[in-house]
């Protein structure tokens, strides 16, 4: 059952050193900044972080990297105009990088959440990112064997959650949230607003509460969210 936490600190309590942490967001859209700040405060280190990017500016994931808590990044697109924190750590040899094509990253987490043992994917066939991987030709096309990617913890941001953990998202901030929510042993979600059971139309629920372990209300991420409901 979903527990509603009073604070982000309570929501991230118990995350251990060495955990694999799935962190939602595409750039800053959907980035669970309050939960990451709480994780920095909580102190877990030697983390493997799975996220599409490797931090922007100085906040959110970039702050976790800057605090020296991340041993390895698994992501699709680390290099951006404002990824200077990651760039510095990488060039200094202080962080490991596993580069995964974006769709394969999402599908590996989907497989983990859906109980799939592995899958053949056409993406990256014949490229350097397929080197060392098992391949198979199916109907004349080459596929690469990809394994599930599980998290010990997922930290994601949704728009509104009810007390049973049912979630709705907002626009392209949805991105990796619904997939990551299924793929971790402990899924922790921050929302702009927690509502009573029955307040969400069941037809509109994107992530059913079965995937959500802890929920915390952090208020709107920015002014635009205050108007939407």
């Amino acid at each position: 059952m979903t527990a509603v936490a009073a604070t982000p600190a309570e929501a991230v309590a118990g995350i251990r050193d060495g955990s694999t942490v799935l962190i939602g967001g595409f750039g800053m859209a959907g980035m669970p900044v309050e939960l990451i700040d709480a994780l920095i405060e909580q102190g877990a280190g030697d983390l493997t972080v799975v996220s599409n990017n490797a931090g922007n500016g100085d906040t959110g994931l970039a702050a976790l990297l800057a605090a020296g808590r991340v041993r390895k990044m698994i992501c699709s697109f680390p290099r951006q105009s404002d990824s200077y924190v990651f760039d510095g750590l990488y060039r200094a040899g202080k962080i490991e990088l596993e580069l995964v094509p974006q769709g394969t990253l999402a599908e590996r987490m989907r497989a983990a959440g859906a109980g799939i043992g592995a899958f053949y994917c056409p993406t990256s066939a014949g490229t350097p990112l397929a080197e060392g991987k098992e391949t198979r030709v199916i109907d004349g096309r080459e596929y690469v064997l990809e394994y599930p990617l599980r998290g010990d913890v997922a930290l994601i941001r949704a728009h509104i959650g009810d007390r049973m953990g049912n979630l709705v998202y907002r626009k392209t901030a949805r991105n990796f949230g619904p997939v990551m929510a299924t793929a971790a042993a402990l899924t922790v979600v921050q929302v702009s607003r927690v509502v009573e059971v029955g307040a969400l139309d069941p037809e509109n629920v994107v992530t059913p509460g079965i995937y959500v372990d802890r929920l915390v209300e952090v208020g709107p991420a920015h002014a635009a969210q205050q108007e939407a409901s």
């Binding site: 699709s76 951006q80 580069l99 974006q102 769709g103 394969t104 066939a125």
Partner: peptide, 16 residues
């Protein structure tokens, strides 16, 4: 050498 690799969705788009 020294370039930080980033692939994003390029490989998925190319074959999709």
């Amino acid at each position: 050498p020294g370039a930080i690799p980033a692939v994003g969705g390029a490989m998925d788009l190319a074959i999709g």
